[in-house]
Design a protein around this nucleic acid. Sequence first.
RNA 1: GCGCCCGUAGCUCAGCUGGAUAGAGCGACGGCCUCCGGAGCCGUAGGUCAGGGGUUCGAAUCCCUUCGGGCGCACCA
Length: 645
Amino acid sequence: MLQDKRNLVAGVLRRGLSDVFGLDHDPVVEVPPQRRLGDLASPCALHLARELRQAPRAIAERLLEAVDPPAGFNRITVEGPGYLNFHLDRTGFAAAMIDAVPVARSATVDSRAKVIVEHTNINPNKAAHIGHLRNAVLGDVLARALRRLGQTTEVQNYIDDTGVQVADVVVGFLDLRGCSVADIEALPEPFDYVCWDIYSEVGRWYDGDPQRLELRRRTLHALETGEGRRAEAGRLVARRIVVRHLATMARIDIDYDLLTRESEILRLDFFVAAFEQLKETGAVRFEESGKNAGCWVMPLADSEEFQGLEDPDKVIVRSDGTVTYVGKDIAYQLWKFGLLGRDFEYARFEGALPWETAPSETDAGADDGDRFGEGSRVINVIDARQAYLQRIVRAGLEALGHQDEARDSIHFAYEMVALSAKTAERLGFSGDARLEMSGRKGIGVKADDLLDQLEAKSRDEILERRGDDGNDEAGEDVDLLARQIAVAALRFFMARATTTRVIAFDIDDATSFEGESGPYLQYSIVRARNIRRRLREEGLAQEVPGSRVAGLPAGVWSDDLWDLVLFASQCQEVVERAAATLELSLIARHAVDLAQKFHAIYHRHPILHEQDADLRDARLAVTQVFERSLEALAAILGVPLPERM
RNA sequence: GCGCCCGUAGCUCAGCUGGAUAGAGCGACGGCCUCCGGAGCCGUAGGUCAGGGGUUCGAAUCCCUUCGGGCGCACCA
């Protein structure tokens, strides 16, 4: 909503600057810090003071003479050191906000182009931990934001089912514990928790006798060829773990369009196709001698951005003929853009949603019309520690001559989640600083454990409140509500952190339902809905139409009421900026600031007991605007909004 | 050694392309339920924006530098 007004203001200022000073200047338009100062402001007079050799205020005064308020504005004032401040017609703007869509299709989005978002990507060999949750929540919020803005979006979750991590767990079952494949199959849930322990156990077992690493190598090779007992065990482990990961993510409303399995990349010789291209273009070369003798490497020494590396070459094919992760990822990235020249086969995972890459059974999936891949932009949500590898993948595309696709290969980097010193200590890990999680060492907080804890706490809080008024709800209602509150708490906690900052995960902080939290958002909306419910019970109109708002006298809009309307009108541009910059915390922050403004107004401006009809309707209008705006932001954040708490 | 990220209130963090008195949550202290639910609101205390230079009418914000802390720089992913 506000973006249109910004453009109007910029337009009249640009014309004014041209008419009065003969300047071609693109004026900055911002929202001033206080409502009494106005609603949009430009510091252009300050910016031009030097060039024009005049005092900023004098420039502003002259512009004021030459410029008329654009449509929807009442007046223009000069404030402070020389700001030109534009004051909106509050009644007209508020009436328009009643009927506006808070976050709509973006004019900047090309709906024919598809964006592929890859996220989660957890190695299928152990339970998900809270670090994985950060990845999944960021990826999911990004996908929701893009879709809300009208962007065709495909979410992929990469399953490395042929890697070292799966191999280690297979060794753990077969060699360390002496299990058969049938034994693994018979293990009860939670299977991912069993693997969590085995994985760290195997690490210690290797340390006990380095000879045992030969078992890892043998298993890894079996996983790649897909043949034999070890491969069978690997498939079983990966499949059972993926089922668990999907269940964990489903608890917080995260799902996927496609699971891409590395084993299929191997089976279908994706790398062979990519390798041909790499060889043809000279992007890789065979090393006859030296440190990397017998390997195919991608030379990086000539590249500006890889200066200062210890080794200026990156191994793509090892001397034993196996392919490194980077090699496979280049092939995968090429496929995402439709540049590989071949495609996966598809089937429903476990016979249900989502799709996975798999040998197609008969002609299943041929008639669904779904087409995966062929994105025009690819966003990989991967933690910042892998920035170097992502740059190499991009360099691979460049070397193949795909400059545009290299530019549109975006690494959405975020910092890791570590444990706060206090939380680490509570879990039995000593330390005086924050502690990095490690699946290999078994250090971390499992996602399901955190969710269980959040749900238990939610239930306690609900029952405590229900007990007071004696109105017990049905038990299953409490369960649903407890889940919703837990989801809100977790998702908001992950989404509110800026991507460049390491999260020091503190259990008390993460499970707080006060202040800047998911439940705080929920409570604000519950209050708004309570008001409307009470109005209905009193036989009063629970909604006020835009036409009625348009007739309200200007005096009803006190600065605080008006401030919320103006703030709500910025939802669209906040979401657009968040999607464009990949700084999703902007959305979380806007949501919590909006809720804060509403909570404050709630206490100052009663609706039900207000006798003045104009005042009452103005307040109700603000409540409506608030409700619809927060609903839109919460939907993007994946925060469910209950009717009552 | 090279590269990336961080250093703002006791703690956890916001501060957008430089601009109007440096903000919020938690914690501390003090208030607010005859009035739409106190998972809330209002107020008080608390900051040489790590240090030092520079650019500018103006710097938490941009540049340089120093000092702390984190993470990368594999024939692991």
